[in-house]
């Protein structure tokens, strides 16, 4: 089996948001929406800090769909629009999505977005990968692990563009893949482990 995943080196993440825009571009994500965001942990604002000056810390937290092995969204989806595919990715069949947003309520990572209106873009054309399907008003969408790229054997655009190579992509089922080795050797952790969602996105320092 194949179980695609990403491990993110939080030491190397400089909070630049390149992953956010790489994803936005590749996947034709409309205005007001990001599938991939970088949070500054513990802060309301981007580039804030935790503590009292000068005793401060700052941790950036890149966040998108965690492609969980046991996805809460999938269990909540009444139509089967959300599914786990044979590469271990959590995907959405937009034709089956009825816009009930149960998945959004279920996802503990707030990783999903919803098209409340007909999507608009800052430019008046569709950008990104031509193979990425357009989404209409009334469907949920989120990180697909760059399905169109990973289907072609390429790495996700966020991984390709990360300026510090903080992102490692690969097959978690292959014990010899770099991502598997990092998960084991660098003490990687997942977000909200107690939720039992078993994310395929790992974080390490």
């Amino acid at each position: 089996m194949t179980k695609l995943g990403i491990a993110i080196d939080l030491e190397r993440c400089v909070g630049c948001h390149t992953c956010a825009n790489a994803c936005k571009m590749q996947n034709n994500v409309p205005t007001g929406m990001l599938w991939n965001r970088v949070l500054t942990e513990g802060c309301e604002c981007i580039d804030g800090a935790v503590g009292t000056y000068p005793n401060l810390t700052r941790t950036f937290l890149p966040l998108a769909c965690q492609h969980c092995e046991n996805p809460a969204c999938l269990r909540a989806c009444p139509t089967g629009a959300t599914y786990k595919d044979d590469m271990g990715r959590v995907e959405i069949d937009y034709d089956k999505c009825i816009g009930c947003r149960m998945c959004m309520a279920a996802c503990p990572y707030n990783a999903r977005s919803f098209n409340w209106e007909e999507p608009v873009r800052d430019v008046d054309f569709n950008y990104g990968d031509a193979a990425v399907p357009a989404r209409a008003k009334g469907v949920a969408e989120k990180c697909t692990l760059c399905k169109e790229r990973t289907d072609r054997g390429e790495e996700p655009m966020c991984v390709k563009c990360c300026p510090t190579q903080a992102r490692i992509f690969g097959d978690l089922d292959d014990p010899n893949s770099e991502v598997s080795r990092v998960v084991v050797n660098r003490g990687a952790h997942v977000l909200l482990e107690e939720q039992g969602t078993r994310p395929q996105v790992y974080y390490f320092d």
Binding site: E44, I46, Y109, N110, G187, L192
Partner: peptide, 16 residues
Amino acid sequence: SGARNSTLTRRSFLKT
């Protein structure tokens, strides 16, 4: 991982 997760809640992931 336990230590880190204790600071995170679903609220941490609100859209910003």
